[in-house]
Nucleic acid binder design. Structure first.
Lengths: 326, 326
DNA sequence: GTGAAAGCGCTAACAA
DNA sequence: TTGTTAGCGCTTTCAC
């Protein structure tokens, strides 16, 4: 049976109120401070957060819901968010909604029953109604990369548009005429944006062709297979834009096997390859997302929403880096 | 302000006891059942788990502490554990201890204050004392891949030895005489085992040489650089055993750049490459860990420990698959 | 089958 | 500064 404040009171001869006050940073007389510290050490006291949260109606924890924990970008965001929240004194509960909208709702309820103070949500679908239940319960919500239209939540958005546009224009300038897009996953706002920008830029140039859009899985294998399939179906393709790290690795591997010196005739732009760019013989062009910052900013925004009720939107830019595979 | 059982009582004209009983699966009269269901829907009632846990002295959550969430294997384990625990009716709190022993202890305290019912720990170091505090508080603990000597916790171990031994013997049989090991991270039990088996097998064959052991980082880049460095320092090396997925990718890339047809003179065995093996022109040999099973078994063991107080040890085997890079 | 009431460990008035 | 006490939302005897 773990020690309680009452035990500390008995041990020290003080009252629970004094102990509680001390634990929460109030001043007590030096003799008492010592007594309390000794008792805490002796009994191995650890505060019961459940009792505290019940009383305070706040748990000092943030719930994070992601559709898939397996990708590099998600892992990095999660690790960073968790670490940053810890610096703010918050704990983190992470749940994987497995790309399943009803599981996502169940997860929300689970977290609500745990009295989390706020939510960070990477939604399964782009449906703004998904977070209704959280707002009904009055919980602050930060949505990542989606639900732009919703005004009662904070947003953090990775703005691909510029970098994507640059990459596409660069391809066109290079003379590419059959530019393919390989993407995966759900159509949340920023994913839609990527397709939109692809369509807009190519339409402007008179090069748009729906059949050059390929949907696959968020994996190395997914990228590898999509690229092979693309070239098999449409050998005229002379450029690839790939929208996820794992897929980029796979696609690049496929190209390297496709033909010696492919980069003479085919352009390639991947994503988030910067960190590992050094390992490629041919340094790939890449749109780099601000991986390090996303987590930190995300944590800050939700804490601001929880503690000050402040809703904010934050946009992070990507950077297009031209490599040897323009 | 979220609805409470009291609100339901007021709404239905029943007592809180009846409501509570119903919610916990007891029988009530049909009319009352309807009343309660209606009230729950109308008020959007969600049970407050903190109050419940406070009373029950159990939170139906499991704490999971990992040293680094960034690697593929960890993320897969986490996702699987979480999903399986959900099937058992448990929630999950995941924390990254960032390879830092004092952060690990802090995390344990955080979770203890959250009254988690049990712990799954991938320890930062191999030091068995790390989980003392958890056992003192009477919490069931499942340790992954470490602390074999500790008898008061459950264990799940990925047994590399067989598969590693096979791989090494295969290399020797092939005539390799300068076999290098690339590893990373902390020396928890199974990591030590990998080095032990490497040393034992090579010593037996009279081929052991400490300088062929390279320590690097758990990343693609880490594997890439370690391999290049190894070949630069000791060009006589004619075989590589690499002990993590990300590093294997990097090392393989480095080899592919090193020389055309390297596999004629150099053997390579990576880890967990099975899933992506199809993407390589040269199908790599690989020691495959039972990624899918680890999470499931882990969840089962901790639930068994929590609910039935049963301590168990489980060993999972790896499989050595010879590819074209023997 | 249902209700009244105590208490889980904590915090926060308010009193002393 | 310190103590007394009520109550957060829930479960659980024990009556009825």
């Amino acid at each position: 049976m773990p020690a309680t404040i009452k035990d500390l009171a008995r041990e020290t001869g003080l009252s629970v109120a004094t102990i509680s006050a001390y634990i929460n940073g109030e001043k007590v007389r030096e003799v008492n401070r010592e007594k309390i510290e000794n008792a805490i050490a002796k009994l191995g006291y650890i505060r019961n957060d459940y009792a505290r949260s019940l009383k305070m109606r706040s748990s000092k924890t943030i719930g994070v819901v992601v559709p898939d924990m397996h990708t590099k970008i998600t892992m990095h965001i999660l690790a960073e968010v968790q670490n940053e929240l810890r610096n703010f004194g918050y704990g983190t509960i992470i749940c994987d909604s497995r790309m399943d909208e009803s599981l996502e709702q169940e997860t929300f309820r689970f977290m609500l029953s745990k009295m989390v103070d706020g939510f960070i949500v990477l939604p399964v679908s782009g449906d703004p109604a998904a977070v209704d239940i959280l707002r009904e319960k009055g919980k602050p919500v930060l949505v990542v990369n989606s639900m732009k239209e919703r005004k009662d939540v904070s947003h953090i958005m990775i703005r691909n548009m510029c970098a994507y546009g640059e990459a596409l224009l660069d391809m066109i300038k290079k003379g590419r005429r059959h530019i393919a897009l390989i993407y995966a996953g759900a159509l949340v706002t920023t994913a839609k944006e990527r397709i939109d920008i692809y369509r807009d830029v190519l339409k402007d140039a008179g090069l748009y062709n729906e059949k050059y859009i390929f949907r696959t899985e968020y994996t190395i294998k997914g990228g590898y297979e999509a690229l092979n399939k693309a070239l098999e179906m449409y050998p005229e393709i002379d450029a690839f834009l790939v929208s996820n790290f794992e897929m980029s690795l796979g696609a690049l591997t496929a190209l390297n096997q496709y033909r010696e010196n492919w980069q003479k005739d085919i352009s390639f732009v991947g994503i988030d390859l910067e960190e590992d760019a050094g390992i490629f013989k041919i340094r790939p062009s890449s749109v780099n997302r601000p991986i390090k910052n996303i987590g930190r900013e995300t944590a800050r925004l939700i804490v601001d929403a929880v503690e000050n009720g402040r809703l904010r939107d934050k946009y992070l830019e990507c950077e297009y880096v031209r490599g040897d595979t323009l």
